[in-house]
């Protein structure tokens, strides 16, 4: 299955290769748009007091593409059909400082660009079937606790909520 899922309005990519940060702006550029908002997540050096050397990302890719597509469609429903949305998530091994997720939203006005970008990253963190195995300087590794999918379906009503990270 290809790692790229794209249509006119959104592009979703799960990649073992490094994320090119210019990709979101290039996909989202449109002469109709006056605004572009983006979010980049990096591997940070310290997590919960432990020195981190890197993160290995794993995903159930078919379902992940489905979930990310749903999130993009929800963002369009909430913030406007005129959006263009780019989502790329890194898989495999990463090191401190590497970009791990890139979200970009192009829109006519800044409000919907910023709000849709925030919506997509928050929903991705809560719903996308992606897991991270964190590696520490002392040689230990551990799966990072996350958000439970098993008890209720997250709805659009929760947009704007923020997590601990």
């Amino acid at each position: 299955m290809p790692d790229l899922l794209t249509c006119d309005r959104h592009q979703i990519e799960l990649s073992l290769a490094p994320i090119p940060l210019s990709a979101a702006a290039e996909f989202c550029h449109d002469d109709r748009y006056g605004a572009f908002a983006s979010f980049v997540g990096w591997v940070r050096r310290v997590n919960v007091g432990r020195l981190v050397t890197g993160i290995t990302y794993q995903s159930f890719q078919p379902l992940c593409r489905t979930v990310l597509t749903e999130i993009c469609q929800e963002a369009e429903q909430v913030f406007g059909q005129e959006l263009r949305i780019y989502v790329q998530h890194r898989l495999g091994e990463t090191r401190v400082g590497d970009p791990t997720v890139l979200i970009g939203v192009g829109a006519i006005h800044r409000d919907e660009a910023c709000e849709a970008c925030r919506y997509v990253i928050e929903e991705l963190k809560h719903r996308a079937p992606i897991w991270k195995l964190e590696h520490y300087e002392d040689g230990d590794s551990g799966w990072v606790p996350g958000n439970c999918l098993c008890q209720e379906r997250r709805s659009r009503d929760r947009r704007g909520s923020t997590g601990p990270e």
Binding site: S59, F60, L63, K125, I130, W131, L149
Partner: peptide, 10 residues
């Protein structure tokens, strides 16, 4: 089917 523990993407 897949077993999906709590997710931690991002």
């Amino acid at each position: 089917l897949a077993l999906l523990p709590p997710v931690s993407g991002g």
